[in-house]
Design a protein around this nucleic acid. Structure first.
Lengths: 221, 221
DNA sequence: ACCTATCGGAGCGGAGCACTCCGCTCAAAA
DNA sequence: TTTTGAGCGGAGTGCTCCGCTCCGATAGGT
């Protein structure tokens, strides 16, 4: 986001800024499509810059991925806050959040903070995860308070549900997003508080944030 | 399945049969975990056999994968027929089928006929796909006829929905299955015919079987 | 005891990747 | 205009990993 006041940089520095933005977007897309196995050269190619420029900004692939997953978590936080701020109804806010998150994924963000439990947790990652937890808790607590969200669905379910709704399929672009939203529609119906007639608890035990942490980060070395 | 009357083969042939079964199971598990990128050597290792024996049965990785995806489709067919035969209620049959399919995936089958649109369609694959279509049509038509399944959900939605419910997550075994079943519970609620008050059509256009075929098979060479 | 079908796994060849290195570009200084 | 050097692009390098082959070891049948 606005880490530089992009004001009066000129010439080559201007080009550097453009490169940075393109690089960021390309990395989002390519990692979203190929996961950790995305070739760095493909990112450079799609960004229209050279390998040298890429490696000047990010000295290793690992650093690039760490930056991306932090950005992904921060975007989820922003989307949660926006939904909460702009939708007065708690249920509408929840729906809005899921739709925004999925649509963004469709246009190619690795919004899923999972790069597969392959990378160690840095302080930045843990901080972002903590903010994500807070933002999702706000969404979920609001809906629970209003009684519209089933009680056995927790904030830690959200990242897992998003993961389930955005599998890697050999389709990209708008059609992929449409399919993701299609099955989100099904899941949303299941999120409403069920009629008292049928208790129908969800399968399994509710996930905890500690479980997500273990799942997102590599076991410490 | 019972392709050989496993009767009176002895000695080395007996070992060969054991190897075949172990190989099959190991391949299911490893492909389920790693997809196409699963190393063949890992399959041999987990089956407890040598590379030589593996390659005598399947002269190439591609043939092995083709066999696996056909087996995956045939198993779905069997599960659909079992559900239909054993559950008189159409809704119960549908639920039974989804649960069986997901549980089997958890114990490690590449039941998803997608290996990623990487392989050409053989006659066998097309035949299996046709049988799968017929079996799923029977399930879906029954539920539609009874009015319990929302009208805009089609049989071609099922493979895609299963794919959405079984993403690759860095968790395996029972916990993975439990999570898949957990979010299946949400989707099932969305599959019921909605109250007439809210039309609430699903997002996107319903998938067609032709779309699945294009998605499962590599573009012809 | 011999034969041979079958087994296991070390090793080969090549593909692909992260990363480096260096010649070039071009805006700005002189 | 000439000089300069920060910043650029991408070919090349070294390495890892994987599909597949080859052949010596193994053991059931006779």
């Amino acid at each position: 986001m606005g880490d530089t006041y992009a004001g009066k940089r000129r010439g080559r520095q201007r080009e550097a800024d453009r490169n940075d933005a393109r690089l960021f977007q390309a990395a989002r897309e390519v990692f979203a499509e190929h996961g950790w196995d995305a070739p760095v050269s493909e990112i450079a190619r799609r960004a229209g810059i050279g390998m040298g420029s890429l490696y000047r900004r990010y000295p290793s692939k690992e650093l690039l991925v760490q930056r991306m997953r932090i950005a992904g978590m921060e975007q989820l936080v922003a989307q949660a806050r926006t939904a909460l701020a702009e939708e007065p109804d708690p249920w509408a806010a929840l729906v809005r959040f899921f739709r925004d998150a999925l649509a963004d994924q469709g246009t190619g963000g690795p919004l899923l903070p999972l790069v597969g439990g392959r990378l160690p947790a840095t302080d930045e990652v843990l901080t972002a995860a903590e903010q994500l937890r807070a933002a999702l808790d706000a969404l979920v607590d609001g809906a629970h308070w209003a009684g519209v969200l089933r009680a056995d669905f927790t904030s830690a379910d959200i990242p897992l549900l998003l993961e389930h709704l955005t599998p890697r399929i050999p389709v990209t672009g708008e059609r992929a997003t449409a399919l993701h939203l299609r099955y989100l529609d099904l899941a949303l119906a299941g999120l409403r508080t069920p009629d008292p007639g049928q208790p129908t608890a969800l399968h399994g035990t509710a996930p905890q944030w500690a479980e997500l942490r273990d799942l997102w980060n590599a076991p410490e070395s």
